[in-house]
Simulated scan of single mutants.
Amino acid sequence: MEDRDSLLAARPDAGRQPELWWVLSCSYRLLLAQMGQRRRGDPAWAPLPDDTGSVGRHLFVWAFLAVVPHVRDYHATIGLSDEESWDSLRALGEELALSRRLTGRAGLDATWGLPMVFTGVGFRLGRLAFEREPLHIGGAANDLLRPGESALNTHVPAGGEPLSDEACDTSFRRAVEVVEPFPERVVGFAFHSWLMDTQLAEYLPASSNIMRFQRRFSRFSERVEADWAPLEHVFHRRYDGPVVPPSLLDELPQRTTLERAIVSHLRGGGHWYSQTGWFSVAAR
């Protein structure tokens, strides 16, 4: 409700804001032109300058809403159910809420995932979300993918039901069904996240949903330091500078095993890392 009210109050006007209206029109046309496609290396959509105010922070939301009928039509052509289509588009509200928690302001922060959702190449299927477009995995891809083969990039949306084996199995099976008619041959799933950090095994029981999910994948990429990731995704907090401030760690809740693990590891001078994991469709 709060994000809806702020959005309606920030509706752009072609007469009063001609420059922003031009940006909105270009964004709308770009989304339509890229429907069902993703060009490798597409950048994130950065927020507009602060001096564009609330209208600027909501401008891309209006562009995404304007293409909803076209995305829904595309979803129907690739065989998504009505429920799967709306589940996918619900990412807009989720990202608005996350942006508000992270920045304290209404509107969108930088967004990388929403342009994929609203061009149809990113979709949610039950507990997990995927990107259909072939993924450049990295140096190890030479050993994993042949010409004409691709991997679906996997995401774990925040919230929702637990990350159980049954829910994940259902999502992976459905993803294989959705991409079956397309030209690329999907032979595996890739997942780039701090949830691939093997250090989690030092803190979480082997029976936990996170560890069970992690064990689906084989790791092959280099580790990338990502202390920001668990702070943003678990605690919805950001920080300035290269090091997590001790004062921020003191403010974080310690209600769950995962929350305690994140904080104690950082307090002890450790770092969290993102890594890319992979598993083949045959191994699923």
Rank of each mutant, 00 (worst) to 15 (best):
E232P: 00
E180A: 15
L65C: 10
P242K: 04
F123G: 03
V263Y: 03
R38N: 09
W272N: 08
Q214M: 14
Q17P: 00
G268E: 10
R219W: 06
G270E: 12
P12N: 11
R90D: 15
T52I: 01
Q17T: 14
F130N: 02
D5L: 15
V187P: 02
A66H: 10
E202S: 13
V176F: 02
A158Q: 13
R185E: 13
A261D: 07
E222Q: 13
E19A: 15
T256D: 05
I137G: 10
R16F: 01
F64M: 14
G56S: 06
R219H: 14
G277P: 10
A261M: 06
Q17R: 08
A151L: 08
Y239R: 06
S88P: 05
V23E: 14
G277L: 08
F130M: 10
F213W: 14
R39S: 06
R216S: 04
R267A: 07
F60Q: 09
E149S: 02
L65D: 04
A9C: 01
D82T: 12
P253K: 13
R90W: 11
A106G: 08
G138Q: 03
S27W: 06
F60G: 00
H271K: 12
L92E: 04
R284F: 02
R72C: 12
W62H: 15
I137A: 08
D240S: 12
F189P: 03
E83M: 13
A9M: 07
L30Y: 09
R11Q: 13
E177Q: 13
E225V: 13
Q254Y: 05
G139S: 08
Q214Y: 14
A167S: 09
S81T: 15
R127I: 02
L195R: 11
G53S: 09
S54W: 00
P49R: 14
W194I: 06
A76D: 12
A190K: 02
S164W: 06
Y28K: 06
S54A: 15
A190T: 14
G122C: 09
W112E: 11
R72I: 07
D240H: 10
L163W: 06
F235K: 01
D250E: 15
P115E: 07
L80S: 14
T256K: 08
V68G: 00
R72H: 11
G148M: 07
R39G: 05
